[in-house]
Computed example of a mutant assay.
Amino acid sequence: MTEVKQPRLPAVERRAAIVAAALEVFGSGSYSGSTTAGIARAACVSEPIIYRHFPSKRELWFACLDEAWRELRAAIEQKVVAMNDPSGLPDVDIAEQSPWANPLLPNLWLQGVTEAAEDEEIQARVRAHVREVHDFVADLMVEHQAAGAIPADRNPDAEAWLFLAGGLLRSFADRLGGLLGSAEFAAIGRERRRWLSGG
């Protein structure tokens, strides 16, 4: 049987493909249990190709953290647009509309907090990352308050932390299985929206 060779991709596309494969590997496993050899297999490249783009597994994990945040930010922005124009929302399960429907980012945060706890560089990156997400969400809350969509007595800083706590809860449920189902998450989402909208 003749081996089919992968087409040679430009460096930027190859790097993106490696990050996508690494997100799958890290997201379905653990930081310590994920290897660059396993990620190389998932990306259909040789392990040296990984090291051409990333000097270490840690740097690749950092790239995954950034990509997971980019994806979550896009989901949040899409949700904000949908909130401003509810007629554009498709008729889907409310739990699946949550930006936390995919708990990949909080899964990565938990890896950074638990499995890589002795790595000060990872700890610093996770701290900065969590703060960046918090600040982004708090700023959105302030904008919605200014537009009258959120009552003025709601604390944007506290609400942003509660948003992040929701992601961690989703991550626990994802990792433990059977903790909370879609009905419970839908109920939590409804209550959060009711509180934030003042209604």
Rank of each mutant, 00 (worst) to 15 (best):
T2G: 13
T2N: 14
V4A: 11
V4Q: 14
K5L: 13
K5Q: 12
Q6E: 11
Q6D: 09
P10M: 09
P10F: 04
P10Y: 07
A11S: 13
E13V: 12
E13A: 14
R14D: 14
A16C: 01
A17Y: 03
A17C: 11
V19S: 01
A20F: 05
L23Y: 06
V25H: 02
V25A: 12
F26C: 05
F26M: 03
S30D: 12
G33E: 06
G33M: 05
S34G: 07
T35F: 09
T35N: 10
T36M: 08
A37W: 00
G38V: 01
C44K: 15
S46Q: 14
S46P: 04
P48M: 08
P48Q: 10
I49K: 13
I50A: 05
I50R: 05
H53K: 08
H53M: 11
H53G: 02
F54D: 02
S56P: 06
R58V: 10
L60W: 07
L60T: 07
C64W: 04
L65R: 00
L65Y: 00
L65N: 01
E67R: 13
A68F: 03
W69S: 04
R70I: 11
R70S: 12
E71G: 10
E71N: 14
L72S: 01
A74K: 06
I76H: 01
E77Y: 05
Q78L: 15
K79F: 12
K79D: 13
V80E: 07
A82T: 09
A82R: 09
N84K: 14
S87D: 14
S87A: 14
L89W: 06
P90M: 04
P90V: 08
P90I: 07
D91F: 07
D93E: 13
I94V: 11
E96W: 03
Q97N: 11
S98K: 02
P99R: 02
W100Y: 07
A101Y: 02
L104Y: 00
L104W: 01
P106V: 05
W109Y: 11
W109A: 01
L110S: 04
Q111P: 03
G112T: 00
V113N: 08
V113W: 08
T114F: 15
